[in-house]
Design a protein around this nucleic acid. Structure first.
Lengths: 184, 184
DNA sequence: CATCCCATGTAAAAAGTTACATGATTTG
DNA sequence: CAAATCATGTAACTTTTTACATGGGATG
């Protein structure tokens, strides 16, 4: 029921195909939602039944034909209603790394630190990657109001990853300063 | 397949009931995983079949009897194997608020700012709440290695919420400095 | 006297993932 | 010539959520 709004939000920016939408989830700066192509196509079908979207078929030579979906006025009303009058559910996070962190006591300090180093490196890449995307897209300028969403969420992504990097650094130091348990 | 490790991680700290485990997910400083009681009970049943856990029944007067689950040596081996040799999948985040953010262009600046203020207030409460829990639990002292998990993840929770607060502040200022779109 | 806490479970529905299926064109 | 990209979909399966079900004791 909620991938729906993610799709409507993206379609409110511009008409797109299911393929485009899936790739936005997969590759773009959308670390705050995830999905698979099968789910995207399914939901697009449902939304069309409910008149929240329509599609036009674009015939292409060389590439397969595609269905470009457009949000309807009904769809946009639906989206705005949700945005303003529906209280956001708390974010659902499933972070395997933090589960591992919470069980660090069952492995050695060295192994824990090694895991943290890897995680730090990964998040450093995210900071760099998202930073580059933001720079390329906005070139140091402030966006127009139509692009404010991407602008704000890109910055969020950078801050989130940077927070993770800093926390990894801190955690490594903390662990190093602790005496290891001799029992167990 | 992954709630399993969250449960094993918690059971590796101390034997607990399904009820306890669910409440840890629901209320405790575990913003990095979420679940429901029905899923917890089901998974505990499965894990027992696979000899990763066992349970003892504690008979109580007044309250219902309870099943206290304990991780087995097999279960602990399973957990450690996963922690060290299984690469963590990237965190899956489903944050409705960021979907709303990404679609801010369909609502007014005032409404967007109002949503950000509410989100900021919520995260300020999280910072305070988690900070108090950490203070109560560790009282400014460093934990022993058996408690390192809670210590590190509590700090993570505080930093995460603080990052959200700071980002909200930044986003509010950014939006105020942008000219609103007159079209659409 | 209503609601919350303790405590455990099942059943049904919804959401999400993985695998199956197809097929031309482009890139290395 | 193998792999990746474009492009869409279905089927089977797994995971997750919501609702149903029960019931005593404590709290306001």
């Amino acid at each position: 029921m909620s991938i729906r709004y993610a799709l409507l939000g993206l379609l409110a920016k511009q008409p797109q195909t299911g393929y485009d939408l899936f790739h936005t989830f997969k590759t773009q700066q959308i670390y705050y939602w995830s999905s698979t192509h099968s789910q995207v196509y399914k939901e697009l079908g449902k939304m069309e039944e409910e008149h929240l979207t329509t599609h036009d078929i674009v015939y292409q030579e060389g590439s397969p034909n595609k269905k470009v979906y457009t949000i309807t006025p009904d769809g946009e009303r639906h989206l705005i209603e949700w945005m303003i009058h529906t209280k956001s559910k708390p974010a659902k996070i499933k972070d395997e790394f933090l589960i591992k962190t919470s069980a660090f006591h069952v492995i050695s300090k060295e192994e824990a630190i090694s895991l943290l180093h890897r995680m730090k490196a990964h998040n450093e890449m995210v900071v760099t990657g998202t930073g580059q995307w933001k720079e390329q897209t906005f070139q140091g300028k402030k966006p127009g109001y139509e692009q404010v969403g991407e602008y704000l969420t890109a910055e969020y992504g950078i801050r989130y990853a940077q927070m993770y990097v800093d926390w990894c650094d801190w955690a490594i130091k903390e662990i190093q300063s602790l005496p290891e348990n001799t029992e167990s």
